[in-house]
Design a protein around this nucleic acid. Structure first.
Lengths: 160, 160
DNA sequence: CGGTAATACTCAGCCTGCTGACCATTACCG
DNA sequence: CGGTAATGGTCAGCAGGCTGAGTATTACCG
């Protein structure tokens, strides 16, 4: 018997996301980080990546990732340099400071603790959210959550 | 067996929210509306409100609501005028066009259809999201999802 | 009555996210 | 080859969200 029961599900979703982001950002602020930057760092942990691949992995537009990286670079967490073998590409590398910040600030235990004690069925929630992401990101991020899977380090097989 | 299973719950939540907002915005675009504007219109349906009350109901900061209303006013969906009995307040009123747009564009059937066929346990998802909103909005929006409940139209009893 | 505090909004500035337009580099193909 | 397309990034501009600061009005209280 709550007013929230009358909210559209989309509005509930947006509100919850904003509140959790806010909470998470507060936790990350001492590291001069926020949820967007941390997501990028997290993807970079296994190794350097192209900017476009990074954007696809985080599921944001290239332009958005560009500015996020600008900020991360300013904070000294990341380095960008043009790829010599393909001068269109920009390769993004984690700095030691970036790795440290990611590991310390982005502790999954802390991240998930936000939900403990509030959400009963956490796996159920995750499943529902994942289903939504899969459903709606199909068109927008064709090769989204995949990373270098081929021997040469490309996401897709060399066309030919 | 999906890459999404490795995402932190917060990231899943944000991604899902963004995608659903995007979808919903596409549907609202023909009316020159988006999710934020529609939420405000929806709150205004029962009758005029103060800007601050509106902001609290939608759970955004006053400044954010200010600009959202600026846009809604520009679109002719809303009118703002200073309250004569308290010239600090701004009273927001739905125009006929605003009411029509809200009712037609904001059809709940359409809104909820986004989730049908994708989320199995919709009530479960809603319950989890509502729990999160309740949990984290406690401090920030003390008198959030309540509306004029007292005879004189105030949200809180007149302090005396 | 008058000074201080509280209230209601706006302004400026930042960040994320999006779209549309643009540039440089590389790939493709006649 | 050489022209056109595809690819990878950036710039500009808009909108939502936030914080911090400032203004005007009203309430409170000595």
């Amino acid at each position: 018997m709550d007013e929230l029961d009358h909210w559209a599900t989309g509005r509930l979703l947006s509100a919850a996301a904003r509140l959790v982001e806010h909470e998470w950002n507060s936790h990350l602020a001492p590291w001069d980080l926020n949820h967007a930057g941390l997501a990028a760092l997290h993807v970079l942990l296994p190794g350097p990546t192209t900017q476009r691949e990074l954007a696809a992995a985080v599921q944001v537009e290239d332009q958005t990732m560009s500015r996020t990286l600008e900020r991360l670079e300013r904070s000294g967490y990341v380095e960008r340099r043009r790829d010599d073998s393909d001068r269109r590409r920009v390769v993004v590398t984690l700095t030691p400071a970036g790795r440290a910040a990611c590991l310390r600030a982005g502790d999954l235990e802390v991240a998930e603790a936000l939900f403990r004690g509030t959400v009963d069925d956490l796996p159920g929630l995750r499943a529902a959210l994942a289903a939504l992401v899969r459903r709606f990101s199909q068109q927008r991020w064709p090769d989204a959550p995949t990373r270098a899977t081929f021997p040469d380090g490309r996401t897709r097989p060399p066309r030919s």
